[in-house]
Design a binder for these strands. Structure first.
Lengths: 216, 216
DNA sequence: ACACTTACTTAACGATCGGTAGGTTTCGTC
DNA sequence: GACGAAACCTACCGATCGTTAAGTAAGTGT
């Protein structure tokens, strides 16, 4: 006892609250919303149940805070790198490198994030998660739009190309973060190679322009 | 009642059992394993709870049967089309067209299938689902291996290229099957365009060969 | 007539779920 | 040293969970 001489007290967030969020992140990321009980979360944190409800309104509220917490970090970084970069190749490289670095640093993040877009629908959370996902997608779609307008890209509309690029990026981030040592797999080298594959394809044969139909 | 004069009575499967599996598919696909209760399943089927346990050992057993049921259908079709086709472009086209058609015919299938690989880990099911996923991936990886050996593809090893292709195919199948009217979106035209994008890229600029590092 | 299987029923089991009422300690402020 | 807010506790709530015991009605073979 009396061990928590925490000098920082950064922002208004308590140390207990932080541990609660962190434990919730771990469990929600690996087991999902429905399969994770508040009892598991409080046991992992080392507090009693009313403490959790002292900091959060409900299990759902806790989940949303965990998602927003990590998503906001990722989103800010992404937005900053894009406005500091010119040219579609460089921008896509920045996006995917940043995403990989973020996911490699904490594999729980992609595991949480992607289960919300690929996993089962949690009806209470659907609206909230939809909005979160659209922010991210919108950023990429904007990059594509500018690149089409400037003649750097072709083969589909901005939405289709964004979906294609996010396919590649997200699927790799997701799949590799679930394997052992994701930090050795989600490398800048892989990121760059995937951008090249997106831009130039992997065929040895003569070039041909894809015509992706509008998906929206 | 008495409306279901189903002539087939195929195999040994009872009509009640079939309805049970179908209701389970609907619910597991949309809400996931943990969030779906056996009570919901039996209510949707219109039977009592012991009937479910008459046909299945447990909730887990029911889930595995539902997954195997649909997966086996998809897998057989896939395997057949590949061995009947030559050349990587044609084979990939056959794979993705078949997958899209299968997903468009019943959007519950991809929703169930992908939540098992991208969704939260259900520890009791992890091993079973891992094996299922590897069958599918292995088929694609084999196609890539042959195409690399024959000099049709470059830019990475078979495993990496399979991961890249599955990224594109699976993500589109998943995302579009969750939108309204998936049957109008998961079209052969989209399938073909995605194969082209995989092979030739979407850049207007000069060609360049990607070098995807090994991810395994 | 009897046994046996198939396809169900009603009624309940213990365990766990999310959430809370109400009391206690700690601590800065006046 | 009185006082309220913040941070926590014990103990319990009703609801729902997966699962089962025990019984029944209808057919089927002998």
């Amino acid at each position: 006892m009396a061990s928590s001489m925490n000098a920082s007290a950064e922002s208004t967030r308590n140390e207990t609250e932080e541990r609660l969020l962190d434990a919730a992140l771990t469990l929600f990321a690996s087991k999902g919303f429905a399969a994770t009980s508040v009892r598991e979360i409080i046991e992992a944190t080392g507090v009693t149940r009313p403490v959790l409800y002292y900091y959060c309104d409900s299990k759902q509220d806790l989940f949303e805070r965990v998602v927003r917490w990590k998503h906001d970090d990722a989103y800010k970084e992404l937005d900053a790198t894009i406005s500091a970069t010119r040219g579609v190749a460089n921008r896509l490289q920045a996006i995917i490198r940043g995403t990989f670095a973020f996911c490699a640093a904490d594999p729980r993040v992609p595991q949480l994030m992607f289960q919300t877009s690929f996993g089962p629908v949690v009806s209470e959370l659907a609206e909230f998660l939809q909005a979160i996902a659209e922010i991210r997608f919108g950023i990429v779609a904007n990059v594509m739009l500018e690149a089409i307008d400037s003649g750097e890209l072709h083969g589909g509309d901005a939405h289709s190309l964004a979906l294609l690029f996010c396919s590649i990026m997200d699927h790799h981030a997701n799949a590799l973060s679930r394997m052992p040592n994701p930090e050795h797999k989600l490398t800048p080298e892989l990121a760059d190679a995937l951008v090249d594959a997106f831009l130039y394809g992997v065929s040895t044969g003569r070039r041909k322009t894809p015509q992706i139909p509008e998906t929206l």
